[in-house]
């Protein structure tokens, strides 16, 4: 039987922060794999090491030890420029605070990853426009981010994440700044994207949001304490 290729492979990831004499093991031997097309929630209490593992998965940082392969390529020993390339081509970030550039219009914001991918002006705005339309904000492309509601801004950041057609969409507390109704909208939208075949990883401390995913990985004190189907997780928490 041929083994299926994983999108994400984490082998014994450790991240150690040194603070003077003491050291914090933010990630302490994390291993799991995520396949193409999955929708995974990574949950854990504050300080458990979620952001740390997200930074590593998102190629914003490299582990102190362990191995991280994305699409079969070892990312854990890459230099800054190679990491930037990975972020640009493979990963679409969705942040809690949207992280849009306030002085650019929506189109300009969505174009950014394409700009750094070296795509020409015409093609860039075409792709960005398509992406903006995909999140239902095509007619507002001229607006500035601050002229939009929080939910709309988060949709723009989703459009930006989608624009470069990445292999992985990485959402860090995507609903953290939204009320429950808009949160649901955003989550439903992410689910929809997943249905279309996008791989989605959501980092959250909120169990109710984790329960919207198909698979849940729980981090506790920098280690994986649960990894399984969402229904099994539901039984644990309810």
């Amino acid at each position: 039987m041929e083994e299926r290729k994983h999108l994400i492979e984490l082998w014994d990831i450790c991240k150690v922060y040194k603070m003077g004499d003491s050291e914090v093991r933010a990630n302490d031997g994390i291993s799991f794999t995520i396949d193409d097309g999955e929708m995974v929630a990574i949950v854990g209490k504050s300080g458990s090491g979620k952001s740390t593992i997200m930074n590593i998965i998102g190629a914003l940082d490299v582990p102190t030890s362990g191995c991280y392969c994305l699409n079969g390529i070892d990312v854990s020993k890459m230099n800054d420029n190679q990491l930037a390339e990975i972020r640009n081509k493979q990963i679409g970030f969705i942040f809690q605070q949207y992280n849009l550039l306030p002085k650019m219009n929506l189109l300009g914001n969505v174009e950014l990853p394409l700009l750094y991918a070296g795509i020409g002006e015409n093609k860039r705005s075409e792709l960005a426009m398509k992406s903006l339309k995909r999140v239902g904000l095509g007619d507002k492309w001229k607006n500035r981010p601050n002229q939009l509601s929080g939910g709309q801004q988060q949709r723009v950041s989703i459009a930006r994440a989608l624009a470069g057609n990445p292999s992985l969409i990485l959402a860090d507390e995507p609903t953290g700044a939204l009320d429950s109704r808009t949160s649901k909208e955003v989550l439903d939208f992410l689910k929809e994207l997943n249905e279309e075949g996008n791989t989605i990883v959501i980092i959250t401390h909120d169990n109710s949001i984790a329960l919207e995913a198909k698979r849940v990985i729980k981090i506790h004190d920098g280690k994986v304490s649960f990894d399984g189907h969402v229904e099994e997780y539901r039984k644990l928490v309810v």
Partner: peptide, 13 residues
């Protein structure tokens, strides 16, 4: 922050 955002989106040094 702008620099951070640009870098997260793939801007190289």
């Amino acid at each position: 922050r702008e620099i951070g955002i640009r870098k997260s989106l793939g801007a190289k040094k």
